[in-house]
Design a protein around this nucleic acid. Sequence first.
DNA 1: GTCATCATGTAAGCCGTTACATGATTGC
DNA 2: GCAATCATGTAACGGCTTACATGATGAC
Lengths: 233, 233
Amino acid sequence: MVELAVLGVLREGELHGYELRKRLQEVLGPGAKVSFGSLYPALGRLATEGAVREVEPPPDSGVPPETEGPSTPMTGSFTGEVAAFRAAHASKRRPRRGSRNKKVFGITAAGETRLAEMVAEPRVDDRSFSLKMAFCRWCDRETRLGLFERRRSTLLERLSESRGAMGRPRSRLDHYARALLEHDTESTERSIAWLDRLITAERSGTADVVAAPAPIATIPTMTTTNESKGQAE
Amino acid sequence: MVELAVLGVLREGELHGYELRKRLQEVLGPGAKVSFGSLYPALGRLATEGAVREVEPPPDSGVPPETEGPSTPMTGSFTGEVAAFRAAHASKRRPRRGSRNKKVFGITAAGETRLAEMVAEPRVDDRSFSLKMAFCRWCDRETRLGLFERRRSTLLERLSESRGAMGRPRSRLDHYARALLEHDTESTERSIAWLDRLITAERSGTADVVAAPAPIATIPTMTTTNESKGQAE
DNA sequence: GTCATCATGTAAGCCGTTACATGATTGC
DNA sequence: GCAATCATGTAACGGCTTACATGATGAC
């Protein structure tokens, strides 16, 4: 979960942990906070796996090139890397860190692959759907359609359960439980309709935002409030 | 979480663990499953605390023990359906299951108090709201209003964050992230409207005592961080 | 007599949080 | 120089899930 989010955010640009967390708040949506206690270990894991690597902080606020091919190849010995890390960490003068002793991370080519895999992973998970969708632009259209349709069928199943619970004879639901269930049911219905629109747009659209190292284009979203006519970037 | 659900379900009638789990599925809504690995320890904890106690299943041999006893008037619905189903398909069978291997639990007076406290507990928690609402009938109107209004203010805050994220000028949101955010925002708006209706209905239900304007909804400063009292949950 | 289901539990592990510990940089 | 903030980490703990272990009962 956290790793998916981290990769997704880093895919858009290099950041250090502290900044990353702020971006994560936005991406995970309001209400979900990522603590440092999970963020930093996650970064460490991803770095060990080679999905992420520490990069030199930009001297100015230009976008650093997304270089690939880690300077320290993964084929090297693990202990060697650890030793190098420790040696670097022990010395006070960190060439890798910026003015504020920051560790700036960037995604690697392996990390981009990993991110795409994570988005494509077919396991249905209520919590991770939003995350997957937030980064599904890095996948091809088929993968996106799979994601949307899996979600849709999950919600459909849930809807039938809810309706079954509502329609039961002599139901024991009191006023509050019933109101809750009705609201839930309605929300599910709306989500399904929303997904239907997304799926239709995805099928008919000519857009294919295949994961190319495209620069971060500022989308001129003067959205004319039409969700059905998403002019398919 | 689980304990609140267990108390809430047991408040409606005595059950043993296996049945409890089925009811829990309904109460927690589709998609949330409670595993035995968390249910049984929770029951144990509650029993140790005295919120729940093991009761004797009805010793009536001619009737399946699941059907209602004199002290459990509402127990019949779900298990009654099962019994009826069995009776219909296995006419002469007596589905009486030896009560030896079942541990039937009932709520105690302390448990009822505890349940009411849990529903009233002011800590905002996204997951537990549904649960609290599902059992809020066991509280008085003030408590219910507090619950609804706390939820409302949480959603309001979230809504303003969402809108802020949507309206940001240099927003890097692509088509998918934006669609997600818009759908989320709309859902939040609808939930707030729903809560407004609930609150109005609650207030006008029998406008007797509570006529005080709630200060919670208007003040954005949330002071809900340090509400935990003695009983940690 | 054997299998599916009912029924109760325990153990290991995942994933995340809170709380703690440390240090660098900036503003006053 | 002192506090607030920025920044990175570690340790302890918590809750829930999965997998495992056990046994009773009813169906065939």
